[in-house]
Computed example of a mutant assay.
Amino acid sequence: MLDSNRLRRLEQMPLWDFALAFYADPEVERACLALQDAGGVDVCELLLHGWLYVHGLEALPDALAEQRQSREAWQREVTQVLRHLRRSLKPEALNSDSIAALRKTIQKAELQAERENLQRWQSWALEVVAFEGRLKNAAPRSQDVAKWLQDSLYLAQLDKECVDTSGARESVSQAFQVLATRLDRFEVPR
Rank of each mutant, 00 (worst) to 15 (best):
A138L: 13
M13L: 15
A21M: 10
W16K: 01
R30M: 10
A65I: 09
E132Q: 14
R76M: 02
R30V: 01
P91G: 03
G40T: 02
E27T: 14
L2A: 06
R71C: 13
A93N: 02
Q119N: 13
K104P: 06
D97N: 11
L111S: 08
Q119C: 13
R8T: 08
V28M: 05
S96W: 04
Y53Q: 08
A146L: 02
T105R: 15
M1Q: 08
Q36R: 14
L60E: 12
E72Y: 10
C44V: 01
L46P: 02
H55W: 04
S123V: 11
E132G: 12
L135H: 07
A24M: 06
Q36P: 03
S123K: 11
E11D: 12
H84M: 05
Q67I: 05
P61V: 07
H84C: 08
D144T: 04
S70I: 14
A19R: 07
Y53N: 06
H84S: 14
L2K: 06
S96P: 08
V28D: 02
E58Y: 04
T79M: 07
K104C: 08
M13Q: 14
Q80M: 05
A125V: 02
R86Q: 01
A59T: 01
V41G: 01
Q69V: 13
Q119F: 11
I99C: 09
S4I: 13
R30F: 00
R71F: 10
D97A: 13
L111P: 08
W16G: 04
P26F: 08
L135K: 06
D25W: 04
L64P: 03
E27P: 09
S70L: 12
Q119R: 15
Y23E: 09
A65G: 12
